[in-house]
């Protein structure tokens, strides 16, 4: 059974002029120990998908349709106190900016201890011992000393390690990592990604890795889902999506990754910008920017379907071209 199963998720933001659909019918599953990468431009709805899963949509956002199942149990309509018991305990979260994610007035030990004690039946002393063990696990030197240090005594990369310890310390089944490396130095990104992946492997924790960085995805994810304007346009194994993307948007995205073995003069770019939520075009949302768009793309919206190694939402190669 998959750890997480998202079915036809719809996230809406009511506003004065009506309702904006930020996530529109997204479905995917993640198995134990698997890393699913969710990629796309800013505003594609990937972070909101993550926020919807943990029940922390920024107001006035709301889940307007679909279902979210954690270990087979529906969690999308739970009352707040039950959702709180799931957050941290069964779903851990890692945010983008480690410099602001930790409370500056509490020691890292205090923050680890309160998280564990909120979810696990531990005495203060046991929790403290575990906190030290966790700091060691995420690669903090001299953990029994650093446990009493405040976040300001840690560098950005070290703080992200602490944040990973915080997300994992109650041993959740699923970790949602929302742009975990974006705010870090390039030299540290790889370490953080490797750490996250190793910890998840060892514990069988599933990871939803939200990022716009294809490099991070290529290194870490088992499978990739590419989002555009609130919908998944292509999903499949990382290798297949990177090597032979079939959706033109995914293709454009992959072509924008620089490669070490194939020298290129200029990286390709996708012209134009993603549509605003209140002006999503009819048919395929990508058609105004698509180099291969034809009549059908402007009228009818394509659904995801199997196209060889991946599943893609595109009319190309479906009878007419």
């Amino acid at each position: 059974m998959p750890v997480l199963s998202v079915r036809d998720l719809v996230v809406e933001f009511p506003n004065r002029r009506g309702v904006a659909r930020a996530v529109d019918g997204v479905s995917f599953e993640i198995d134990p120990g698997e890393v699913l990468g969710l990629v796309g431009e800013s505003g594609a709805g990937k972070s909101l998908t993550g926020a919807a899963i943990v029940g922390l949509l920024p107001p006035p956002g709301r889940i307007a349709g679909g279902a979210i199942l954690l270990d087979g149990e529906r969690i999308d309509a739970l009352p707040p106190h039950r959702m709180r018991a799931i957050r941290g305990r069964r779903i851990g979260m890692i945010f983008q900016d480690p410099l602001t994610a930790l409370n500056p007035l509490f020691t890292v030990g205090q923050q680890l201890i309160e998280t564990m004690r909120a979810h696990l039946p531990l005495s203060h002393r046991q929790a403290r011992e575990r906190a030290i063990a966790w700091l060691a696990e995420v690669g903090i030197a001299a953990p029994s000393m650093r446990v009493d240090a405040y976040p300001n005594a840690f560098s950005g990369g070290m703080r992200q390690r602490v944040a990973i310890a915080l997300a994992l310390c109650a041993e959740p089944r699923l970790v949602i990592a929302d742009e975990p490396t974006t705010a870090l130095d390039v030299s540290i990104q790889a370490q953080i990604v490797a750490l996250l992946r190793r910890l998840a492997r060892e514990r069988g924790t599933a990871i939803l890795l939200i990022t716009h960085d294809m490099g991070v995805i290529a290194e870490t994810a088992d499978r990739v889902a590419v989002m555009y304007a609130g919908r998944i346009v292509e999903i499949g194994s990382t290798r297949a999506v990177i090597d032979s993307p079939s959706h033109p948007y995914a293709d454009g995205l992959m072509a924008s990754i620089p490669s070490l073995d194939r020298p290129v003069d200029r990286l390709r770019q996708i012209d134009g910008a993603m549509p605003r939520l209140d002006a999503i075009p009819a048919g395929c949302a990508f058609h105004p920017r698509c180099p291969s768009a034809f009549d059908r793309c402007r009228v009818e919206r394509p659904e995801l379907r199997d196209v060889g190694p991946t599943r893609s939402a595109c009319w190309l190669g479906q009878g007419h071209g």
């Binding site: 941290g88 945010f95 007035l105 509490f106 944040a163």
Partner: peptide, 29 residues
């Protein structure tokens, strides 16, 4: 609105702990 309050919620802390311990202490400075 601070990020660490969001993170505290994501860690499943109670509203009480978030408001009176995390937020209030920062407010008092």
């Amino acid at each position: 609105r601070a990020e660490y309050i969001r993170f505290a919620r994501a860690r499943g802390l109670s509203d009480r702990a978030i408001h009176f311990s995390h937020a209030l202490k920062n407010t008092l400075v």
